[in-house]
């Protein structure tokens, strides 16, 4: 089982205000907030952590059947390079994040060696969301003008 999540950075800058009072407290753990506030680019780290949490949550909710909005329970740790982990309860997810000028995309799996096997397709579009059902992806994320499919 794999998960993914994409944030269109232009849209994120318009649709959300991470500096809003209470925003960081509702979404991030103490350790994540410390990293965000002390980092060079808080905006990018906010959305990197967010995609890690969402990618892991998509697997978690499918595995357990639980739907909830509990981002603080998904604890992110940054690893080497683009890698990281997300822990919730006794489950640990492994993540790999791609950051470009325009978007942040994170893939997640239950085993670290799964990540290299995931095929990623990112489609930039304008207007209607392209049809993707026939491609039969394992997980889908779309935000702004980007559609991310993983297989």
């Amino acid at each position: 089982m794999i998960g993914n999540d994409l944030v269109d950075l232009y849209c994120a800058s318009i649709e959300s205000n991470w500096k809003r009072k209470g925003f960081l407290d509702k979404l991030f753990t103490t350790s994540e907030k410390t990293q965000i506030r002390s980092g060079e680019n808080p905006f990018l780290l906010v959305w990197k952590y967010w995609t890690m949490k969402e990618a892991a949550y998509k697997i978690y909710s499918r595995m357990t059947g639980i739907r909830s909005f509990a981002p603080v329970k998904l604890c992110c740790t940054l690893g080497e390079h683009t890698f990281g982990t997300v822990q919730i309860d006794d489950l640990k997810f492994y993540t790999c994040t791609e950051m470009t000028e325009n978007y942040i995309h994170t893939i997640a799996g239950l085993q670290s060696d799964q990540l290299a096997k995931i095929r990623i397709e990112i489609i930039h579009y304008s207007g209607e969301l392209p049809a993707y059902a026939s491609k039969n992806p394992a997980c889908v994320s779309h935000h702004g003008h980007y559609l991310a499919l993983v297989y």
Partner: peptide, 8 residues
């Protein structure tokens, strides 16, 4: 990502 704004 906007659910937090709804809550706030």
């Amino acid at each position: 990502a906007n659910l937090v704004d709804v809550i706030l």
